[in-house]
Amino acid sequence: MKKLKLLVLAVLPIPAFFFSLVIGQFDIPPLTVYEIFFTKLFNPLISSPWPPAYEVVVWNIRLPRVLLALLVGASLSVSGTALQGLFRNPLVSPYILGLSWGANFGVALSLLIPLPFSPQFMAFSFGLLAVFLAYSIAKVRGETPVISLVLAGVIVSAFFTALQYIAKFFLDPQALQGLVYWMMGGFYLAHWDDVMVTCIPIIFSVVMLSLMSWRINVLSMGDAEAKMMGLNTELNKVVIIVLATVMAAVAVSVVGTIGWVGLIIPHLVRMAVGPDHRKLIPLSATVGAAFLLVADDLARSITTYELPVGILTTLSGVPFFVYLLKKTKGRSWS
């Protein structure tokens, strides 16, 4: 029974993937979608008997979007899980060290001043810069106590929020609208390029953090204890923070700030399979991927308009979270 549960959670993205491929504004019979998908997958050079629009929709529009949603979902959830374990705090999200506010400011800056860099690159760099600043602020005598890190994250977030408001003040309404939309996050611009850019760092980080998952167990006992159990805590902390931050920063830079996934999914999975990070990290990846994919399916099919998926993750995540919290009486972390 327990094994079955693990298995179901582990393969969750597969049905979500095939379900999502047939969802979209453009009407293609589901079977044709799968036909196109498998033909293109195994015989990419075959000349297609379908209308060219079909092929473009399935292969160039839906597939990158679906893959990107999977990647970003996995990235935010694993990042959240790893940081919650490391910081021994279940309220931590990938954005705790100021990542999202740094990224937002980067985008605002790129809209304000014409720079030779893309907004994505600016978001990524400023996201990392914010985390680096938070880490530097928290570092006292070569050590970074968790509480200092969290406080430094708050400080850095506040700093970049202020900077962003300054930038916003000078932005004209059109650009401002663009910034707001970017901040809410969404997959509607997904291209193969985005998948290519994000897949390597995200997959690499997911694999690395899965390998280090037992280390995270030990680290979650606290700095002093982990040290007494022979760990170089500072090095471990840096490696995990870097992996978790880079993967989340990559995701944020491509699709904007998508809230709650990195907070809720770690909780949900912890409630389902317990706190052991050896199961928690890989299953966060699969559950997070499936969750965000389905959320995006809703975002693109509820109305003719594109809804920002961040609104849906919040709307759907919060009540579910409240339900689970009440049901388990918060047992998963006390």
């Binding site: 453009f26 509607y188 003719t304 594109e306």
Partner: peptide, 13 residues
């Protein structure tokens, strides 16, 4: 100003 999906635009053609 209406944000739509690329599929919608392909459908409109």
């Amino acid at each position: 100003y209406v944000t739509v999906s690329i599929e919608q635009i392909i459908e409109w053609d």
